[in-house]
């Protein structure tokens, strides 16, 4: 990448008393990239976004957003970024259009610009049906789209979306990710947080965050590849006993029931895993079908990173 990155984070840290919410994380986001922040609730994703938006001062380290220091140049920074908070932040007793007017005004847009942008956003985000409805009466999926429209009314070059799809149904979630894709295609840099592993695959790159630490940073593809050859499925009868049996094996890292099938993740570097698993099932008196390799999920990657670190304590 020849251009300067949109976001550069170096050793960013936030402490609340003794609690370290964000622990020396560093990463960079290129222009027009969709960067995902993946981790469970309370991992420090929102705290990081709030520091990047200049809403919280870091305890340590620094963040440069759009070439500006997030702590010291928060004022000018705020004009260039769009921020969609985790909690629904539009006025419920105002219509979508009135909320757009409000946010347009906050960013100093002229009445004519607000009107033009509203028309554009209604077309792009397909808000036609809800633009004159009170946002408090909208279904969650529509609300989130209205909130996205308000966050980008001033055409920011960088957008922070904090859990934009939480509480949104499957279909609406897919549509929302299509919108994120459109934004990036138009050159906007997007930082999006989620705790849903499934949708995280749509990001260009992913940072996995756990207890304030960045534990992995790569493309979804590369992250999934780290587990290739370690996840298997097999038909087994009775399945529940099969899961219990396999969970007790020392080469097994993770087991789960997936329908009538058993899903297993084994230690990396295990030789002939299919054979070993089949033998173990037979030895346990379980009638099993053939053991087949399966596609790992990002959840597998996350659990592997957190669990295999061998720290013992459950998060």
């Amino acid at each position: 990448m020849t251009e300067a990155p949109a976001v550069v984070v170096e050793d960013l840290t936030k402490r609340f008393g003794d609690f370290v919410a964000v622990d020396h994380i560093s990463f960079a986001i290129g222009r027009g990239e969709v960067f995902g922040f993946l981790g469970p609730n309370g991992a420090g994703k929102s705290t990081t976004i709030r520091m990047l938006s200049g809403l919280l001062l870091p305890s340590d380290g620094r963040a440069t957003v759009a070439g500006l220091d997030a702590a010291r140049e928060a004022e000018s920074l705020r004009r260039r970024i769009g921020y969609m908070p985790q909690l629904f932040s539009l006025y419920p007793d105002l219509t979508t259009r009135e909320n757009l007017d409000f946010y347009g005004g906050l960013y100093g847009l002229s009445d004519r610009d607000i009107e033009r942008r509203t028309d554009e956003l209604v077309a792009v985000i397909d808000l036609g049906r809800v633009v004159d409805q009170l946002t408090g009466t909208l279904a969650t999926g529509w609300r989130q789209r209205a909130a996205l429209a308000c966050a980008i009314i001033h055409q920011p070059s960088i957008v922070f979306l904090d859990e934009p799809t939480s509480g949104v149904d499957q279909a609406a979630r897919r549509q929302f990710w299509d919108l994120i894709g459109d934004l990036a295609a138009a050159g906007t840099t997007v930082l999006v947080t989620t705790h849903l592993m499934g949708e995280a695959e749509r990001c260009d790159r992913l940072g996995m965050i756990d207890r304030g630490r960045l534990i992995a940073l790569d493309t979804p593809r590369a992250l999934l590849d780290t587990l290739s050859g370690t996840v298997f499925v097999a038909e087994a009868e009775p399945p529940l006993q099969a899961v219990e049996l396999l969970a007790g094996q020392d080469f097994v890292r993770d087991t789960a029931l997936s329908g009538a099938r058993v899903r297993v993740r084994v230690a990396r570097g295990l030789k002939d895993p299919e054979g070993v698993l089949a033998d173990a099932l037979v030895a346990g008196g379980i009638s099993a079908g053939p053991v087949r390799p399966a596609r790992p999920s990002l959840e597998d990657v996350f659990v592997a990173l957190v669990g295999d670190a061998g720290e013992g304590d459950e998060a």
Partner: peptide, 13 residues
């Protein structure tokens, strides 16, 4: 209480 302050606080106002 409603959370609408966050959007306001993140704007240049």
């Amino acid at each position: 209480e409603a959370g609408s302050f966050e959007g306001l606080a993140a704007s240049p106002i």
